[in-house]
């Protein structure tokens, strides 16, 4: 029974990673940049909900909506101010700028909220699920996290494949120049990608903080890195890939924490990543690109 509960927790953590990884992966696919600030957008999303629910007494659902709006505006602003001027510059320059933005967000949060850990109030108030006469209890947060992630994943896949804006995103990520010639607003599409990625980050932030109720200005950075690993794991740029990568990563992390060693769990997660990449260098669902001379 304990295996099942570890597994459920792993899938729930993995779903959070998957949500973050979706943002990473979409932005990477379209702007060819590693947005290191993504993890910190999660943290900001968490703080917004914290302030809304704990300090102002707003209804949790409304707080989550506000948080999504704030993060969307934040994501688009970051893109406009810090990344857009660097379009066409070396990818490394964009990477370092993203790191600068990440420092900036962490320090703004540090100044406003202080470095002490905030106890996040769980926004999911549903009863826990009890199976096999109470031998296996799965918390409602776990279930809500998994369900929300699956719904978002399906929604996003439909959006990208069926709507005009989504098709434009695919086109821009394939070939920016050709997309522009076809009359696609490239800058607008990139901004839209950042907006979607950031609002997903807000949802991920709320779910992460509900499952692990401690919030500091550095809360987002390690899940951010892990989600990035998950995105690479599943094949960066692919939506189902990010989802599979996230779930696998969460499950491996939780199971190795439970059965092997809690100290070495990160080492195990990263070792699995390395093995996967050595066998399949573009990730599980990544596309192989033939190199031309």
């Amino acid at each position: 029974m304990s295996f099942l509960s570890y597994l459920a927790n792993g899938i729930s953590l993995g779903s959070v990673y998957a949500l973050i990884a979706l943002g990473y992966s979409m932005v990477y696919g379209i702007a060819k940049m590693l947005n290191f600030a993504h993890g910190d957008v999660i943290m900001i999303g968490g703080y917004v909900v914290f302030v809304g629910v704990s300090n102002m007494g707003v209804h949790p659902l409304l707080a989550i909506l506000i948080s999504m709006v704030v993060c969307t505006i934040l994501g688009v602003t970051i893109e406009r101010v810090a990344y857009k001027p660097l379009r066409g510059a070396s990818p490394l320059a964009v990477l370092i700028t993203a790191i600068g933005v990440s420092y900036l967000l962490q320090n703004i949060a540090l100044l406003i909220f202080g470095s002490d850990t905030k106890a996040f109030t769980n926004v999911v108030t549903l009863p826990n699920l009890s199976l096999f006469d109470g031998k296996l209890v799965i918390s409602s947060v776990t279930i809500v996290t998994i369900v929300v992630s699956i719904v978002i994943m399906i929604g996003l896949t439909l959006f990208v494949n069926k709507t005009k804006a989504g098709r434009a995103m695919t086109a821009v990520s394939e070939d920016k120049g050709a997309a522009q010639l076809m009359g696609i607003n490239v800058n607008g599409t990139i901004a839209l990608t950042f907006a979607i990625g950031s609002s997903l980050a807000a949802v991920a932030g709320v779910l992460l903080c509900s499952a692990y109720p401690s919030l500091t200005p550095y809360t987002g950075s390690m899940p951010g890195i892990k989600a990035f690993v998950a995105a690479v794991f599943g094949g960066i740029g692919s939506i189902p890939g990010a989802f599979i990568g996230g779930i696998l990563l969460g499950v491996i992390e939780n199971l190795s924490k439970a059965y092997i060693s809690s100290q070495l769990s990160d080492a195990i997660v990263f070792s699995v990543l390395i093995i996967v990449l050595l066998v399949k260098p573009t990730g599980i669902l990544g596309k192989n690109i033939q190199e031309k001379v």
């Binding site: 810090a82 660097l86 510059a89 700028t97 790191i99 900036l104 703004i108 540090l110 100044l111």
Partner: peptide, 24 residues
């Protein structure tokens, strides 16, 4: 005091934009 890392981050971003942005 508390603002130093904030300034550090801003300096880093501005320097990168100034050094690498095609417009700059």
């Amino acid at each position: 005091a508390d603002y130093r890392m904030l300034i550090y981050a801003i300096v880093l971003i501005v320097m990168m934009l100034f050094n690498w942005s095609p417009d700059a």
